[in-house]
Design a protein around this nucleic acid. Structure first.
Lengths: 338, 338
DNA sequence: CTCCGATGTAAAAACGTTTTAGGCGCTCTG
DNA sequence: CAGAGCGCCTAAAACGTTTTTACATCGGAG
């Protein structure tokens, strides 16, 4: 508990008033160069750093971005996502405040609470869903926030999203080019924003290739390994089974791979498979799964950038960015070791 | 920007002084029950929440735990780990503050900075390494912290760790029981604390089973998919190849699986494989990889608990907990679908 | 010479809490 | 019946900043 070094210590050390120290450090033009140097030197020497809370109080801002860790797991991207957001926030002197709803509290409530406490200036949201309560609440209270993922109210707030349609389309094009003509899709239940978006690229790709679309080759199911496996089983038992299976998430693709292995069907050689997100299940699968990678770095950078804009002037226009994903080709679609 | 509701508003609404409001909310025994009810009712009605920064200032504490997101990826556990820590912290009214070193700043510096700013009361550290600079700095400055993972200075600070030795031992026992007699280990380079710990369970298991230990059956390598695959290749090319390969991390095990597939060797049936951490590469592999699971919930709970103890009385004894991991058996070691 | 506008510094108020030191009116004790 | 003790409350100080306002000092213009 080495008693902390405050602005008073610097003031004492330099023989200059507290306000001058503050000015020297924050508004150099209001102070003689000589004085400024003296203050900066002393501050450095003493290891002075302005106390966070004390700074927040008169400023009326917290220099903090809130991120609510969702109750249900959000996939594997949290790792890289948070890392990215935290670094980009640090670039603009912002901190990241992690929180979860307290017990008995809705997620939307927890956002409200954070604002009331003045704990954060704004939020980053991920995993947007249809009719997202959080977004309604935040818009109502005129709070600054940026979402990763579009929403039904996307016109009213800033967002960054991956172009899921283009991603799936790229996967389909890749498969068509390799000669596949009977393609199937395993998607998520209707109503998921990003699920529908990703799925739309499938139909589009088929049309572009002049291929017919067989309704039996489209299965919607939960985003789980077992579900993916089951769906694959169904598809393969059909009269005219597909030669390529596109999925909207790597976990589903991993399930498909498992089913193929179990049937002695060689993934990549006999039946091609693609995933989405380029997450661990795709990277560490055998064979490696061709997948659509989201450029997390760019996403993080954009999100923080947009949020800062909104904080500076909440009345200004909303920003949005649909970033292009990139197809990472692996053995599951080519049959050839990457 | 709905101007915030402060304690003054509550004071005005109840006709009672600001200090009484504060007391009513924080020290009910210092106030008449009637007054307390009146205050609580008004506070509730107005939606009053004490301002975070304003509260921190006179208290001299920040009610915040710091966690530095490591520069190099830390594996896949960050997701669940942070989720757990954040929830347990919320239970005791603590918030989590995420940060990374600013550019040109060492990680240790960034910890120092957080303390100087009064931004946090203490830290949670993960990914401890040999001769960990962060730990030295934190001990020197008498800062409260708890590590996930032991350190060389483990006697001087609180920590929670998984018993890696016991975990690997369990894997070995499992394999021996299944009839394997020629076991190999793929570990990390010497000098890694948890790597050595996990590896030690291998030797111990062999000894307990009365099996001889062949030095050629021990390979140390980086924690990477390709490295695991290469190591497996080396092992399988030996004169007397092992029938079971134990690894200290799932990514290595996933690499082994890939090599087995490539050689037409059936994982689980011909050669058994085990991993460690029960992370996505193990769960979503085909076949699923038998792995050692760390009880993240318990770990998170313990870490926060220990940190709170230390914050309450920094002079008190250190706490430590070596939690028992659990072997999750999958097809990679049994050859039978889980 | 006086006055004026810069320029640089200091004093003080403000941010929203908690906490400490009383103060007032009771009741209880001796 | 005086004084101590108690229950309840308030005023004011404190936390460490930023910011606004006020005050010197100085050089130069009139």
């Amino acid at each position: 508990m080495s008693s902390r070094i405050t602005i008073k210590d610097v003031s004492r050390a330099t023989g200059v008033s507290v306000s001058t120290v503050s000015n020297a450090l924050n508004a150099p033009e209001r102070v003689a160069e000589e004085t400024r140097l003296k203050v900066v030197e002393a501050a450095d020497r003493l290891g002075y750093r302005p106390n966070r809370a004390a700074r927040i109080l008169p400023k009326g801002r917290s220099f903090t971005i809130g991120y609510c860790i969702p109750a249900g797991r959000d996939g594997f991207f949290l790792d890289t996502f948070l890392h990215q957001i935290t670094e980009r926030a640090a670039d603009v002197e912002m901190d990241i405040h992690l929180f979860t709803p307290h017990r008995g509290q809705s997620e939307a409530d927890s956002y409200r609470e954070m604002m009331r406490r003045g704990a954060v200036d704004g939020f980053v949201l991920s995993g947007t869903v249809h009719d997202d309560e959080r977004i309604r609440v935040l818009l109502d209270s005129r709070t600054s926030f940026v979402t990763f993922g579009r929403s039904d109210l996307a016109d009213n707030h800033s967002w960054v999203d991956v172009d899921g349609r283009a991603g799936t389309r790229a996967a389909v094009d890749h498969l068509v080019e390799a000669g596949h003509t009977r393609l199937a899709l395993i998607g998520w239940p209707k109503g998921s924003l990003s699920g529908d978006d990703r799925a739309s690229g499938f139909v589009e790709g088929l049309e572009a290739a002049g291929l017919s679309f067989d309704a039996r080759h489209l299965i919607r199911t939960e985003n789980e390994f077992a579900a993916g496996r089951e769906a694959a089983s169904l598809l393969l038992d059909a009269v005219l089974p597909p030669t390529a299976i596109v999925t909207v998430q790597d976990v589903l693709a991993a399930g498909v791979i498992a089913e193929l292995h179990a049937r002695g069907v060689r993934p990549g050689r006999d039946v091609a498979v693609t995933g989405f997100d380029d997450s661990p299940p795709a990277i560490y699968s055998t064979p490696g799964i061709t997948s659509v990678r989201q450029p997390i770095e760019e996403i993080g950078r954009r999100i923080v950038e947009f949020l800062m804009h909104d904080l500076e002037d909440p009345e200004l226009i909303r920003h949005s960015d649909l970033v292009e994903p990139k197809l990472v080709i692996r053995e599951s679609s080519t049959g050839e070791p990457g």
